[in-house]
Structures are given as structure tokens and as C-alpha cells.
Amino acid sequence: MVSHFHKCIFIHIPKTAGTSLWGIVNASQDNNKTDQLLLSFKPDDYKFDPPPPHLRASDYIKYDRIPKELFDSYFKFAFVRNPWDRLVSEYRYRMHAHEYSFKEFLFEHFPKPSWNDEYCHVIPQYDFLHDEKGNLLVDFVGRFETLQEDFFYVCEKLNIKKRVLLHRNKSTSIFNRRDNHPMKMLRSARDKLSINYRRNTFKKFTDYYDAESIDFVAKIYKKDIETFGYKFEDK
């Protein structure tokens, strides 16, 4: 996501509260919609070597989304999240608990490499932010675990009013709905009646794991864990 108004690029790693964060940046532009570029894809984009649904930092240049001189000069930022927590968020977001357990999701239904939305949601965060040589391409990496504090820093860099983040697009649903929306109320009732959902849903992300699944995530997201210093703990 690019804002020419604020001269910034936000690398939106899925499941790191990016929808909430960018909503505030967007709202701070005095409704100057024409100056902001929310990336969308034209049919021609899919003919040859199509870009992924969620652009990595390197993709902005690779797919000519922004001139390199602007990419280099703009303030580039992203947010990362504990990989174990991030995968639970994805599992809940897709509402898989109605169909199978979290462990079955990891070992039997984990997205295969492709440029579809589901796979892009589980790409290692390291790959979103680094080039093939391992160079970090963004100026600031915030953390989901200190989201508000780190977002205030982004606000200062962009010279926008500091605001409290409202968590949109929560992982309890693939839809962004109001609490009193009839469809959300219906889904909530279904959740309460679903034996599978109750059996496969826990309060803490750590409760979704056993030793085998902890190790599964540790291997896939080895670079995330080493680069951003994450451990399997509820913080």
C-alpha cells in the first residue's frame, strides 16, 4: 500500500492488524482519495508472471508498482507478529475450526506454494521484508505485540495525529462485521452450537499447540524467529 500524500509505503503482512493501521493513515489524508494508491489488480496483471495478492517489499519494484527512486525515498514500514500466534489467527480467520483441528490444519491442510490469497497469508514475514540477498528493504519494523506504541512512532514519522487503533478484521471471522450485524449474530449462534468449533477453539494461542506442532512452526518460520527474536510464549 502506497500513500503519495504521506510519501510512505506500508508492507502489509497478513494477520498483523494492517487493516486497522492503514485505515487511520488513509483517514488522515483529508479525504484526498486521488492522492492515495490502494493497490488493485487489473486483468492484464494475470497474463504473465502475475504479482501475488499481498505484495512483498521487493514486489513494488519487480512489478513496477512504484518508481525505484520513490521507493527508495519514501518511508517504508511494516509490522510483524509471533509466528505461532499469527498462524492461529489465520486458522481462526478462515473459520477452519468448524471443519478440523488446528493441528490438522498444520499437517494436512496447510496452503501449498502458489500466488493465491491463502498461501500469501502464510508466507514467512522475513520474505515480505527482505530481498533475495537478505537485505532489509523497510525503514521500520513494528510489532503486533507492541502495536499501539509502535504505531505512534509511525504517526510521528508521517506527521499525522496519534490515534488509538481499533482492531478491524478480527480473526474470529473472515468478514469484517458489526457486533449487532444479523449475519454475525447468526454466526455466533452457530459457533455456540458447533461441537467442532467449541472443541477446536481456545482463549490463548499457546493452547492450540502440542510439542509436534510447535516444532512444525519453528521449522517453517526459522528466519522469522531468528530475525525478529520470537519465542513460543504468550506475550
Rank of each mutant, 00 (worst) to 15 (best):
G18M: 09
S173D: 11
T34H: 13
E145G: 01
N82L: 00
F71L: 14
K170A: 08
H181G: 12
R198K: 13
P53G: 13
L55A: 02
G18T: 05
K170C: 02
S114L: 12
R198Q: 15
P43R: 12
A57H: 02
A27P: 05
Y91M: 12
R94L: 02
S3T: 12
L70C: 04
A57T: 03
G18L: 10
R178W: 09
T172E: 14
A27D: 15
H54Y: 14
H181L: 08
K7V: 00
I11V: 01
K112I: 06
K157R: 10
Q148Y: 10
F175Y: 11
V88D: 09
Y208F: 01
D64I: 03
E156D: 09
D85A: 03
I174F: 13
Y119V: 03
R190D: 09
S194F: 08
A211S: 14
N31Y: 15
T201D: 08
Y197K: 14
D210K: 11
V80M: 04
R65W: 05
V122W: 03
I220A: 11
E145W: 03
H98G: 05
L38C: 07
Q36G: 03
L158I: 00
I225N: 03
D45Y: 15
T172I: 12
K62P: 00
F202P: 01
E149S: 09
A97L: 07
K42T: 11
N31D: 12
S20L: 14
T16A: 08
D117F: 08
S89M: 10
Y197F: 15
F110S: 10
S194T: 07
F110H: 07
L165E: 02
S28G: 10
Q36A: 05
G142M: 08
H4Y: 14
D234E: 15
H54T: 05
N26W: 13
P43M: 10
H130T: 01
R143S: 06
A211E: 15
M1R: 13
K203W: 01
F175R: 13
S213M: 07
R190S: 06
H96E: 09
R86I: 00
D59Y: 05
Y100S: 04
L55I: 06
E118Y: 15
H167F: 15
F216E: 03
D234P: 01
K222L: 05
S114P: 06
L193C: 09
N26G: 03
P50E: 08
D224M: 03
D207R: 02
L136W: 04
L137G: 02
E104P: 00
F216S: 02
E145S: 02
L37V: 02
D131A: 09
V154M: 07
F79G: 01
D127A: 05
R163F: 06
L129K: 03
M183I: 13
Y63H: 13
E99Q: 15
A78T: 06
S20K: 14
K157N: 04
L37C: 03
K68E: 14
S73L: 14
V141K: 07
N176H: 12
F102P: 01
K47N: 14
F205P: 00
P43V: 06
P52N: 10
K68R: 14
W84L: 01
Y46A: 12
D131M: 04
Y230M: 01
F110C: 09
R86Y: 02
C120G: 11
H130Y: 15
K231I: 04
P113Y: 14
L106T: 09
N159L: 04
R187I: 15
E132V: 06
D210Q: 07
